[in-house]
Amino acid sequence: MIEFLKRLDRRWIFLVILLSAVLPMIFPLKLPTVPGTDTNSMYRELQALPPGSIVLMSFDYGPSTKVELEPAATAALTHLWRGNRDIKVVGMALWPDGGPLGRTAFKKVLADLEKEGVKKTYGVDYVNLGYKAGGVVALRTIGNTGGFPGAFPKDLEGTPVSEIPLMKQARKYRDLAMIVTLSGGDPGIKHHIQVGASQYGLKVSGGVTAVSAPEMSPYLNSGQLVGLMGGLRGAAEYEVLLNINGEALKGMNVQSSVHMMMVILIILSNVVYFADRRNARR
């Protein structure tokens, strides 16, 4: 057995991981998800937004991290709009792929909420400004004297910002109530903290990939981040708080099974390692 594991072809590992990812999709497990502190904080902050608030939602991710961050984006948007709350959303992106992915998130949430009688009009209740190059400087450009119209002369659909009613209310950082960023890396959440939170005193929250969630703890601890959805798990916790069974909760089944399999594989490899060491000593 030890010899078999020692010489284990990696294709067996690939097969085991494939099965542990596919099987829970076919036979879903009903596992409980308990919301954590950071997700609860974000939920409370979004819940406390007064009617008429304008939220900047930054879609700073690409297709590679879409699986983790789109459920976070849709959960936050659902919270902002469910029950026909009068919250305006200005979408933007620091990643070139973010504009179209933001469009997908808006469409998905509006299609879901339409069944509950929620109706939002493009240009009045929300807008997608698309991509702006330059990372942190792009954000500083919004803080410039020209504000949003200076940084984004046109929206993603090519409409001049001057013709969009919502952009008459959202001209500068001071018109915003909060920044919600879905961040797949650099540029992303850190830059929103540097500019939006540190320079303009705005509340910043959002979702990040699980791999970058540990990097966010100093910002959460200092209050520069008011809440966070860490990875797919964070999005699943948010879905629990919203009482919806979305993509993130479904994904937790797969993540549970793959994580367990990884742990089993690491334990097996250590068993092999110690057995080998003992044999060598003999």
Partner: peptide
């Protein structure tokens, strides 16, 4: 790794 997924809880 285990604690971040529901099965761990």
């Amino acid at each position: 790794m285990i604690g971040r997924v529901p099965i761990g809880e």
